[in-house]
Design a protein around this nucleic acid. Structure first.
Length: 323
DNA sequence: GCGTCCAGGTCTACC
DNA sequence: GGTAGACCTGGACGC
C-alpha cells in the first residue's frame, strides 16, 4: 500500500476571488448529487471547503471559504504546500483555482434561456447560482471517466477507492488529513497486471497505464485544454487510449453533453416522456435533441438536471433517482 | 450456494 | 463509414 503517513503542508499563500454573480459557493463546490470538487475525501463544513490538488507535480492543500453571498460573491482561498512556490507558480495556481471554481462563468444567458424552457425553468430556481464543473487536475478526471465505463456506481467507487488507497497520496494541513489521487508518474511505475489485481480495474488497467504514459510524455494540462477551442480539446482527449466521446465530454463538460446509458434514461423521459427501449442506441438522438434545445448551454443543462433529480422526480411523476 | 446476466464505453476487426 | 463482438469484475437476481 502506497499510503503511509500524510505529507505535512504549511500555509504558503492566500487570496480572494470575486466570482461573477449570481454565484452560490455551496452548490458549486458541494453539489447536491454528491460529486466531489477535487477529491472524494475533501471536507465541506459551514461554508468552508478543505480539499487538495496537484500543480506541476506538487501536492497542495486548499482551504476555500465563502465570504460573500449570491449577488455579491467572495471566496477566500489559502494554499498549503511543503515547498516554496515562485511567483509564476502562485499565478498558475490562482488561475487553476479560478477555472475550477468557475468564477468567470456568466450564467445570465443560460438563465434567460431557462425561463422559456419547460424542463429547466424550475430547476434553475432550485439551484440558483450553481456554477458548473472545472475539475482542478486532468489525471484524476480521466481516472473518474475510466472507472465509470461499463460499471455500476458501486463498482466504480470500489475501483476509485482502491486506486486512491493503494497508489494515492495523503496530505495534512489546517488540522485536516485527506487522501488524494495517484499521480500519473506513480501509475506509470505500476504494471497493468498489478493494477488489475490490486485496484480491480479489469480491462481498464491497460488503458490507465497507457493514459499515464501519454501524460508523462507530454500532454496539455487541464488549464491548457480549457484555453483551447472546445472541439480541439475534445479531439485531443480522444487521442488517449480508452477515452472516447463520453469520457472526453465528462472531463470537459463544456464541450458537449456526456450522456451514458444511465443519464440517457433520464433525458429520454424528460424529452419524450418515456424510458428508451435501448438506452445505448438512444444516445445519439438524445445528444442531437439536447443540442437543438439548449445549444451551447447543453453542458450547463446537463449538470443542472442531474443535480436536481429529487425535486425533478416529483414534478414529472417518475422517480428519476432509481435508475 | 451456485450459475447467469450485465453494467453510468471503447476499441478493433470485418464488411 | 458502419457495426458486431470482445473486454474485467463483482453485485444482483433467480433458482
Amino acid at each position: 500500500m502506497y499510503l503511509g503517513f500524510g505529507l505535512d503542508l504549511e500555509e504558503t499563500f492566500s487570496g480572494e476571488f470575486e466570482p461573477i454573480a449570481p454565484y452560490c459557493f455551496e452548490l458549486t463546490v458541494h453539489k447536491p448529487a454528491g460529486w466531489w470538487w477535487s477529491t472524494p475525501d475533501e471536507v465541506f463544513e459551514s461554508g468552508t471547503c478543505w480539499s487538495a490538488t496537484r500543480f506541476n507535480g506538487k501536492l497542495l492543500g486548499l482551504k476555500l471559504c465563502n465570504k460573500g453571498n449570491l449577488q455579491k460573491p467572495l471566496i477566500a482561498y489559502t494554499v498549503y504546500s511543503n515547498t516554496d512556490l515562485d511567483a509564476a507558480e502562485k499565478q498558475g495556481i490562482k488561475g487553476m483555482l479560478a477555472r475550477a471554481l468557475q468564477t468567470e462563468e456568466n450564467l445570465k444567458e443560460f438563465y434567460t434561456l431557462s425561463e422559456k424552457d419547460d424542463i429547466l425553468r424550475d430547476i434553475v430556481k432550485d439551484l440558483y447560482g450553481m456554477h458548473t464543473i472545472g475539475w482542478p487536475e486532468l489525471f484524476p478526471s480521466l481516472i473518474l471517466a475510466l472507472t465509470l465505463q461499463m460499471a455500476p456506481m458501486k463498482r466504480s467507487n470500489q475501483m476509485m477507492n482502491s486506486l486512491i488507497t493503494e497508489y494515492g497520496d495523503q496530505v495534512c494541513f489546517d488540522g485536516k488529513t485527506m487522501r488524494y489521487w495517484p499521480s500519473f508518474e506513480k501509475v506509470v511505475s505500476v504494471s497493468a497486471e498489478e493494477l488489475k489485481a490490486k485496484a480491480k480495474l479489469g480491462y481498464r488497467s491497460t488503458n490507465l497505464v497507457a493514459i499515464a504514459n501519454s501524460l508523462k510524455q507530454g500532454f496539455p494540462s487541464m488549464d491548457e485544454l480549457w484555453r483551447m477551442d472546445p472541439d480541439d480539446a475534445k479531439k485531443k482527449l480522444c487521442t488517449l487510449r480508452g477515452i472516447g466521446d463520453y469520457s472526453a465530454e465528462l472531463v470537459m463538460p463544456r464541450s458537449g453533453f456526456p450522456l451514458d446509458v444511465w443519464s440517457a434514461k433520464i433525458f429520454n423521459i424528460l424529452f419524450f416522456g418515456k424510458k428508451p427501449e435501448n438506452s445505448r442506441e438512444a444516445i445519439p438522438d438524445l445528444k442531437k435533441a439536447a443540442e437543438q434545445r439548449w445549444g451551447i448551454w447543453r453542458g450547463n443543462a446537463f449538470v443542472y438536471v442531474l443535480n436536481d433529480l429529487g425535486p425533478l422526480s416529483k414534478r414529472v411523476g417518475v422517480d428519476l433517482t432509481s435508475f
